[in-house]
Design a protein around this nucleic acid. Sequence first.
RNA 1: GCGCGUGUAGCUCAGUUGGUUAGAGCGUACGAUUCACAUUCGUAAGGUCUCUGGUUCGAAUCCAGGCACGCGCACCA
Length: 725
Amino acid sequence: MDKVYNHQKIEPKIYRLWEKSGFFNPDKSPLRQSSNKKQKSFCIIMPPPNANAPLHIGHGVGTTLQDLMIRYQRMQGKKTLWLPGTDHAGFETQVVFEKELEKQGKSGLEMNREEFFKSVWGYTQKNKKIVKKQLKLLGASCDWSREKFTLDKNIQKTVYQTLEKLWKDGLLYRGKRIVNYCPKHKTAFSDLEVKYQEEKGTLYFVKYKLKDKKDKWITVATTRPETIPGDTAIAVNPLDKRYKKLINLIAIEPITRREIPIISDKLVDIDFGTGALKITPAHDSLDFEIGQKHKLEAIETLNFDGYFNKLARPLAGLNVSQAREKSVEILKRNGSLEKEVDYLHQVGHCYKCNTKIEPMLMDQWFIAMTKPLPKTKKSLRDLAVEAVKNKKVKIVPSRFEKVFFHWMNNIKDWNISRQIRWGIPIPGYHCQDCKQSFIEINKTPKKCIYCQSKNIKKDPDVLDTWFSSGQWPFATLFSSEGIKSKDFKTFYPTEVMETGWDILFFWVARMIILGIYRTGKIPFKTVYLHGLVRDKDRQKMSKSKGNVIDPLAVIETYGTDALRMALIIGNTPGNDIIISEDKIRGYRNFANKIWNASRFVLSNLSDYDGKKPILNSRDKKILMNLKKTQKKVTANLNDFKFSLAGETIYHYFWHVFADKIIEEMKNRIRNNKNKKQAQYILYIILKDCLKMLHPFMPFVTEAIWQKLPNYQNKKTDLLMINKWF
RNA sequence: GCGCGUGUAGCUCAGUUGGUUAGAGCGUACGAUUCACAUUCGUAAGGUCUCUGGUUCGAAUCCAGGCACGCGCACCA
């Protein structure tokens, strides 16, 4: 054995050894056969990394924690499956890819749909390979024979079937609604993709003259005077005494001079501004809601390219900020502007490019979240809330359950269509005659299912990525046989979903919703939410910020085991962690400590026969203490307290075993005092420590295990599949 | 507005249902070392556990409130 642990030399060899054994595959693991018939299964579906970039250190956290659980459970003798895969990540990937093109001086617009799709496909395939290589470097013991991609044929088939089911159940509908629209990316988003930022704005108090009542007016407060040409009413609260007499009168909109009614609706906040609200159904979601109720016209004055059209007359051809300036100018000139007040408010921005989101009226596909399922009184939301409420799905840490309920209570219908090119196409069709839309997943329809017209058009949009990844837990296990497949029966519901808290709504909630809806069963029993890795300035790591740490570089310098340990210790669920090189170096030293302590023990076992000698009470006490440590580590692992488990074994190995026990036994062996007992104790503790350490630091422990003497043929070849205590 | 989190050693963070001298990594001081390991060992310095009050035999831990920072959600136009 080398004097210093050489991770660069050993880690690749060990991974090859594991892969060659085939034991990552639960069907081939020998621990399975040696256990009783009612063997429990343990399955984690890996959150699929986006196939658009190499992994960053944040992925390292998830991968490490999952591998830790998987290795521990595998050693517990369970039929253990960790299923890997990657996500095509629709919008995310398209953005990254277009940036790449830009760097090369190209543009995605030069390509037609097929060419574009093909080049992105190639791009993701390349990244998939990199991701896979990185996962292996991290020591991931996942079953590569079951690897999946969100665009695999079978996955897409499952996704389509779910879509069809939703359609047939009346939960998927085509509707013209206000959606969040990014004028730069020219696509709609769900509510989650909008980031609100506080901004200094101006609240304009605008006078609308009353028709037939000279010199009388009603004043409304608005931050968006440029939308005035889209106004189709003014609304006041029915309880507002100030305006009671004005209800049902006609006001004159001050830019294009149209006549609009004054209506009453209890959604209007009496205390805001003047208590009178201008209603622009086409460009505001509350206004749209009120407009629907009162059957108001929705005048779409803003085009999808971000410029106003001729319906906004004097503002036509201007973008939003230009139009705002111009409208204020007009209002000032004609005496309609009562006053301007500085105003701090939250403005929605595109989470990717920070462009201001425009609420726009668009035809999109929505999933009804609060509508009852056929023959039940329960909605998709109800099913998910119920599962978490009665602890069928447990969230760790539990405080996120509150957050989950809060979000669920406010949930709105989910817009799943995206006006981009990379993703799973929506199998939707629009009839040009009767103007109705429908879903058809099995064939290309020839005519409209409603009016039989042959004048139908394929929907050009793709599905929100989260709609497909929201089905990941069962889609990955379905293979081609769906709900009857063997893997699905064996491993679903899966045991743990390990992911970051930042995608609790985006992903976890949707998996619970779609999992229960499609299979009737929860997708996983426990959700473990790890913290985000942040840099020294507490910034979230992201490629666009350029502050990512490349795990490859860290692994090369300090080794995977050191990195893993640094990511586990001090990392508690739901709390973010800051990773420092010093910490990683510290655990590199620990790996070396394990190596050298083992080297010492092994070099002193040459004349030992492996038999258990009679022990005195002092030696028994030492072994009792070992048992106590095992119990503590086991309990912590069962309780998702990985940091504590890691600290416990770290402390025991270094400061009890190496510092105290080895020193004592060293003297006894040298002086030939109870030498056999000393050798026995060293051997037993080392062996057990390697087991305990293996889920944390798989490489160094396996490498040493391979050098352990094999007394009475009792040693299993690979530590990886050795039985936990 | 509603909700959540954090505040522990110089720095970054742990602290398991309240229970002896509050821990880790790095850093600091002094010393050791051909004997498994300088990626080492020993010793030490360094903490009013954010503040105030309460419950308790006992509180970093539970409760109430204050201060500071961070975050999530929300149709206040």
